[in-house]
Design a binder for these strands. Structure first.
Lengths: 232, 232
DNA sequence: GCATATCAATCTGTATACAGCTTGACGGAG
DNA sequence: CTCCGTCAAGCTGTATACAGATTGATATGC
């Protein structure tokens, strides 16, 4: 979305990643002078980037007191998952109704191509990346750039939670078969042009993950404040 | 959302209204120096506000060339309506499932309280205001502040189109009975706690309006570039 | 010992200055 | 007449300076 171009977009990209990964701890105040030094830019472009991130929900802003990292509560994450249900069940429906045959074949092919790795991989970050790619591909197939933007934003905002939760699941030896099966089911429903079924399956898939949100936040917190322990 | 406080939020509010009303014409380049003079603030807070509006989809930004007003095309408006379907059918569902009895009674009461005015009024702006209040109340009843934010944003971005279209409908003598009936049906479905029905009715309501989007954009264009003609 | 008032250090909010780029115009060549 | 190169005016991108607000600490009174 943002061009890899000049200073402000570089600062924006760096900040977005930092905010997504909670390198800035929840509710922590952001010191503009220190950050501008750290990022090698002056406060003017830094504040422009910060303002964009506020509008995108990654940061909050209190007048006269500066910028803060967003908070991280179970209730908030539940809301983000509910929003994902709303947006992604619709992208699945639209993809089923509007995508080209060729792009639907490609979707099925991508799922199968990654299936082996997905089922076997013990790398949480890699699994999450593949999972997000799947959801983003469906969003792209919906042909609606606005919905696609929403999916990207919501994915970015729950990434940290999901990553921590996936590490935990991998650590406990649970294989990712259920998730893989769900992806296959979703892709099949979309490919069969059944919009309503696609929407329902996608809804169920995300709602099932939402149930874990509360515990996932707890895990995320424990990881945030004990950063030295290796988790994978 | 933004405090009525200091300079930057005042500039932000003013710009948001200007962008929503297309006082800045579609794809028009924004001259920062001129705008800063007009708004009585320097370029620094102005650019901060502009960046937030970019993130919210009201403006676009091209590196090295400055800020532009968003474009206005039938395809884009269709996308916004599709997004509204996704988000608002879910707010209706959640409102039906999670809102308190008292707040649902209030929703029904508000619809009935405004029914007479809604059916008879010839003031397009007033009608639109009531319509948006209805949708926003449901979004609030969903208990999900993220979805509520999305509804607000989408409503603001299609407001101008809807206003022009409503003026045209009023001018042609079409009463707003269908819309009023739809609101009653939606409110009843939500109040009866039937989430699926509420979602379906809301979906149908917005999708029906979406059909008019292409013509609405055409009307909006004609009004944008012939601003002197009175339309109501 | 506790609460409160005062103050200094720090940080935010904004204006302004300047460098580099963009763009449109003008003039000349083909 | 058209196309292209050159140039100047204007605009954007960013650094920096400074004023006003905030915050935490220290000291004082009860």
């Amino acid at each position: 979305m943002t061009k890899p171009d000049s200073n402000v977009s570089r600062v924006y990209a760096a900040l977005r990643r930092m905010a997504a990964d909670f390198e800035l701890k929840p509710d922590e105040r952001i010191n503009e002078s220190a950050l501008s030094l750290q990022l090698g830019a002056s406060r003017t472009p830094l504040r422009e980037a910060l303002n964009r991130l506020v509008a995108e929900g990654f940061l909050t802003f209190r007048s006269g007191r500066g910028f803060y990292c967003r908070s991280l509560s179970p209730a908030l994450v539940m809301e983000l998952y509910e929003a994902r249900v709303a947006v992604e069940s619709e992208t699945a429906r639209l993809a089923a109704l509007k995508a080209s045959d060729a792009s639907l074949d490609a979707l099925l092919a991508h799922v199968e191509a990654g299936a082996a790795e997905y089922a076997a991989s013990g790398d949480a970050a890699r699994l999450l990346e593949m999972d997000e790619a799947f959801h983003l591909e469906i969003a792209a197939l919906s042909g609606n750039s606005e919905l696609r933007r929403m999916v990207e934003n919501l994915n970015d905002r729950v990434r940290f939670i999901r990553l921590m939760f996936m590490k935990r699941m991998i650590g406990s030896g649970t294989p990712q078969l259920a998730r893989l099966a769900a992806h296959r089911t979703i892709a099949a429903a979309i490919a069969s042009r059944d919009g309503e079924a696609a929407a329902q399956v996608m809804r169920g898939h995300i709602e099932r993950r939402r149930e874990d949100a509360a515990e996932a936040v707890r895990i995320a917190y424990s990881q945030l404040y004990v950063p030295d322990e290796e988790t994978s």
